Simulated assay, not measured.
Amino acid sequence: MEGLPTTTTTKADRRWRSKPLQTSKPSLLLAFLSCVAWLYIAGRLWQDAENRTVLANLLKKNSEQRPKVLTVEDKLMVLGCKDLERRIVEVEMELTLAKSQGYLKNQLQQSGSLSEQKLLAVIGVYTGFGGRLTRNTFRGSWMPKGDALKKLEERGVVIRFVIGRSANRGDSLDRNIDEENRATKDFLFLEGHEEAQEELPKKAKYFFITAFQNWDAEFYVKVDDNIDVDLEGLIGLLEKRRGQDGAYIGCMKSGEVVSEEGRPWYEPDWWKFGDEKSYFRHAAGSLIILSKNLVQYISVNSASLKTYAHDDISVGSWMMGVQATHIDDNRLCCSSIRQDKVCSVA
């Protein structure tokens, strides 16, 4: 029939129309997994942000409630002690400098006249709480007392009984010694030393330090409590040595190091003295003389100086490390039979 349009479809067009549009399954799966991953990551990021916000709020709240921790400097500022702290540091520095120069700025002085002259010697005689009878014997024999003691000091020689303090400070032992000293005025108290047998090795250190702080002398002499002294002979010996620095004078000896605990003179540090178990040469403890510069060394370095079981060994060990001149004088061997000795066993 003419006049009507005729539509002609090809075989290929019919095939295209008969099949719907399709997407491959792998692509759909990949898209789905991508969406899931994105949602998971977004959720975690949101969760982390929430957690950080909560933690920040908790920290801020706790910091506001927690009391402020003051440093030491803050406390000093609050208490108004900053200036005091500075002054303490300055005083400690001055004290260290004074010790290194061989004197203390505020020395204890037994007598105003003594501060203006350099003495020949300070002689310290060991004693104990139970030694009153011995002390009275010494005062009636070789050791001056009363006005004679003062006249001896005018000659440049100071003699004192040396004693520490009781383990129970202020007890009857201390009070009795204080009372005796008020009558005789011939004691040197070692305030930092406890007067006990087991503390005896430290007594020499305390004696030399205390004597050095109290008197300026050429020599410092330690004497045991069982020794009689020819005082004029000792003074003459020291006069000839006047001006000699580094003098370590005494009856030099050595001897066996006792390593068996329980035996007399046991040395706990015996192993330090070698396989021969023999002490180094040192002045016998009965009478030891040190020149001023050696005592100054002990005073300045006292905190680092070791004491052994015996005080004479301790002093000898200190002298091993300095430029000390060991002077062996047989006149100071108190147990010898020499006629010109200056000391003897009481």
Rank of each mutant, 00 (worst) to 15 (best):
K306Y: 04
A12G: 15
Y220W: 08
D329E: 15
E85V: 12
P20C: 10
C35T: 04
A56W: 04
W38F: 14
D311Y: 08
T71S: 15
K185F: 09
E2Y: 05
D13M: 13
K82T: 03
K306F: 03
R132D: 07
E195C: 10
L29P: 00
F212Q: 05
R86Y: 01
F219M: 03
Q339S: 04
F129I: 12
L97C: 09
K222N: 09
G262Y: 09
E2F: 04
Q110C: 06
F187R: 13
N181M: 01
K151M: 03
S34Q: 08
F212C: 04
F32M: 11
R52Q: 14
I313V: 15
R17T: 08
Q109K: 15
D174S: 04
D178M: 10
T7Y: 15
V125P: 00
G316L: 07
L188Q: 06
V295T: 09
L30K: 13
E261A: 13
Q109N: 14
I249A: 07
S113G: 04
K202C: 02
T137E: 08
D311V: 05
D228H: 06
Q296Y: 00
S291E: 01
G243M: 07
D329F: 13
L231P: 02
K25I: 08
K185E: 09
K277T: 09
K253P: 07
G102R: 12
C81P: 02
K292Q: 05
G128P: 00
A309P: 06
T137Y: 02
T325R: 13
D230W: 04
G112K: 07
D329C: 12
G140R: 13
G140M: 01
L84P: 01
A204K: 02
N62K: 13
P144C: 07
K118V: 09
K145L: 07
W270I: 03
L152V: 03
N181D: 13
N168S: 07
G124A: 10
F219C: 01
V162N: 01
H310I: 07
I227G: 00
M1P: 10
H193P: 07
D171Q: 06
N214K: 12
L120D: 06
V54I: 12
T127F: 00
D228P: 00
W38L: 15
H193S: 12
K75Y: 11
R281D: 08
M252K: 09
L84K: 13
A324G: 04
N176Y: 06
V158S: 08
L133G: 02
L108H: 11
G131V: 07
R263P: 01
M1W: 13
